[in-house]
Write a protein that binds this DNA or RNA. Structure first.
Length: 633
RNA sequence: GAUCCCGUAGCUCAACUGGAUAGAGCGCUGGCCUCCGAAGCCAGAGGUUACAGGUUCGAAUCCUGUCGGGAUCGCCA
């Protein structure tokens, strides 16, 4: 027998300690750091709550029979106060050791989890984490492409905050360069033509942007055509005229960019107008999405404009960048394609800006981690930029540490036709329109339920859901649906967007989670009516006897570990799965275990406390994902 | 052509990072409201994890190849 280690919140830790001791005792020659206990939640609850898979790899290392190794382990294993004694029958298959926790031990762990922070303890080394998210462009509406960057980025930021780290959000706004100068140029022309720009809308700006883009494209397309077609005098003349026209417009835009860069008041005023209109709409949309992205998170490309020349000088002077075919590039080990940091014509590129951004994020903001929540198509770009930044030392924090740079890549949002989601006419779908439709659908379903209330439970609170609350519920249900659908799948994969599926009020959806939460809350209102208040069960002894109670408790105990894993791996979908598991475990418990009508006072108070814990854990998960909650629906 | 990502039930997705009989939701079949919110719960049917090899006690997961789908590939961002 070995000395029993104390019981920690996470049974995995307790079991790990006990198994470690047993293995060390059984195989004294083993170096302590070489012991792996391989404790995991049991896949089959019938067999146990947890399992250790340590025997198999150990047997291999020692050249022994795995079942014998398992036997040697359990002989020295002391699970007193934690789990039922492990006997030879608990050894299954090639050497799995099945473990069933004692109800008392589970209750003890759960009691320790029942703190303000739900068992999530402050990190030993709090980090400064910079999260790049949202990434809107001036003069453009937010569209589905920004949905994931905003929603995932905000969730990643919230996860780090929840874990006790310090987070700086950076909205890398596309607010600089020739495309923007083109819009500014058009705006100046409009103003000179007598147009009052004070009531300019984002839609109008967007139209100007597209017109400008089209002109630029016309030039390129014409050039390509003329090379291909050649020899057709009429066509050539026509094309040349178009080129001249477009070329002149592009030329004016280039001059405008120069003016803008040199601080010409007329240009800057027009740029500012574009900026204000776009960002106003962007921040409003973020707010509707319940994403914590505010003005102070804005760090547009323009904010690096005065640093780019310095970056290039630095790279050149230290020999990190080299000339290649007229351009300036940084070669990165292991990558065939170099990172181009300056064009042949002397212009800078987005890689240049991104290098300046890394330098600021690590060097100035002190980011020990920088996480880019950006489209998977940029994977190569980030490999190049990260490599170049490291070569240049731009990833150093002020105290000399090397920042970890992550590209938290995500896949496309697809339509039901499995192609990137677009309108029928092939345009990007505006995010604002998408939100509108989600809310509209949620509202009509809500109205339908209230109108046909007799079909629903008698105490469905129709009489207390006034219009204002109803609007708020429709809003929350819609946003929960939208965000859960986006966050719950593996980040890197494409996912198919479907209003019908995400808003279906059944199955694995945001609304289901809200519903589960609402049911937990409903109990407390009923309890209060019966004169039972939160203080009455806050410290009630937890009695975990029914299978549904045990299952719920086990799910709750996973909470801290899941939040940590989801945060550290930038995988909100793990927390989504956990929230769904919590809701499911609660639903089963709620179905099978009477709470207010429990047979004894002890059971009733225990179950009320379990409900309270579930409500808090579920709410914590939803908050951490950035999903809004409601009190009733 | 090169590189990267993806391929799991009819459909949409999981699988705790190498563990046992691959799990959920939708849809389908059948149960459960005089009982705390049925937007729920329980049960059933549904699989050669694209394919072929390999690594080992053990593979959806790692390696090689093939086939399909997508993306990216020096002066756009």
């Amino acid at each position: 027998m070995t000395t029993a280690a104390p019981i920690s919140i996470d049974p995995l830790e307790t079991l790990d300690a006990r198994f470690r001791a047993a293995i060390a005792a059984a195989f004294p020659d083993l170096p302590a750091e070489g012991i792996e206990t391989h404790i995991a939640a049991n896949r089959q609850p019938k067999l146990g709550d947890f399992q250790s898979n340590a025997a198999m790899p150990l047997a291999k290392r020692l050249g022994k029979n795995p079942r014998e190794v398992a036997g040697a382990i359990i002989e020295r294993l002391d699970l007193s106060g934690v789990a039922e004694p492990v006997t030879a029958e608990a050894i299954a298959g090639p050497g799995f050791i099945n473990i069933r926790l004692l109800g008392d031990a589970m209750a003890a762990s759960l009691t320790r989890l029942d703190t303000e922070q739900l068992g999530i303890e402050p990190p030993e080394h709090p980090m400064m984490v910079v999260v790049d998210l949202c990434g809107v462009n001036l003069a453009k509406q937010m569209h589905v492409g920004h949905l994931r960057s905003t929603v995932i980025g905000d969730a990643v930021a919230r996860l780090y905050e929840r874990l006790g780290h310090t987070v700086v959000r950076q909205n890398h706004v596309g607010d600089w360069g020739l495309p923007i100068a083109m819009v500014v140029q058009k705006l100046v022309e409009l103003e000179q033509g007598g147009r009052d720009l004070s009531d300019l809308s984002l839609d109008e700006l967007n139209a100007l942007y597209r017109a400008a883009q089209a002109e630029c494209k016309a030039e390129k397309a014409a050039l390509a055509l003329i090379n291909k077609v050649g020899g057709h005098p009429k066509a050539e003349a026509e094309l040349e005229a178009r080129i001249e026209d477009a070329g002149a417009q592009t030329e004016r835009a280039k001059q405008r960019l120069v003016k803008l860069q040199s601080g010409d008041p007329e240009s800057v005023a027009a740029w500012q107008r574009v900026y204000d209109i776009t960002m106003g709409a962007c921040l409003a949309t973020c707010a509707r999405l319940h994403a914590h992205i505010s003005e102070d998170a804005s760090a547009g490309e323009s904010s690096y404009r005065d640093e780019l020349a310095g970056v290039i000088d630095d790279l050149t002077r230290r020999g990190i960048a080299e000339e290649d075919d007229g351009a300036l590039v940084v070669r990165v080990d292991g990558l065939k394609e170099p990172c181009i940091v300056r064009k042949r014509d002397g212009g800078y590129l987005y890689a240049t800006t991104d290098l300046a951004a890394i330098r600021r994020r690590a060097g100035t903001l002190g980011g020990e981690r920088v996480v880019y929540c950006v489209d998977a198509r940029q994977a190569l770009h980030f490999k190049q930029v990260f490599g170049a930044a490291h070569k240049a030392g731009y990833d150093r924090t002020p105290d000399g540490k090397t920042a970890e740079l992550f590209h938290a890549a995500f896949g496309n949002v697809l339509g039901e036709d499995n192609k990137p989601l677009k309108t029928r006419s092939g345009e990007n779908i505006k995010l604002a329109d998408l939100i509108d439709e989600a809310i509209e659908r949620a509202r009509s379903e809500l109205n339908r339920r209230i109108e046909f209330a007799p079909k629903f439970p008698k105490d469905y609170p129709e009489q207390i859901i006034d219009t204002a609350e109803r609007e708020q519920i429709a809003d929350a249900v819609a946003i929960a649906a939208l965000k859960y659908a986006d966050l719950s799948t593996e980040r890197i994969k494409d996912y198919v967007f479907s209003f019908d599926r995400m808003l279906a009020f059944e199955g694995e959806t945001g609304p289901y989670l809200l519903y589960a939460l609402v049911r937990t809350k409903s109990i407390f209102r009923k309890a209060a009516d019966a004169g039972v208040n939160p203080d009455d069960f806050a410290d009630a002894p937890l009695l975990l006897e029914e299978p549904a109670e045990r299952a719920l408790a086990l799910t709750l105990l996973r909470h801290p570990g899941v939040v940590r894993a989801a945060g550290e791996n930038h995988e909100p979908n793990r927390l989504c799965a956990h929230a769904y598991a919590l809701a499911g475990a609660f639903s089963t418990f709620f179905d099978q275990c009477p709470v207010l009508k429990a047979e004894t006072d002890g059971t009733r108070l225990s179950r009320l406390r379990l409900c309270a814990l579930t409500a808090r854990a579920l709410e914590d998960a939803l908050n951490t994902l950035g999903i809004p909650t409601v009190e009733r629906m």
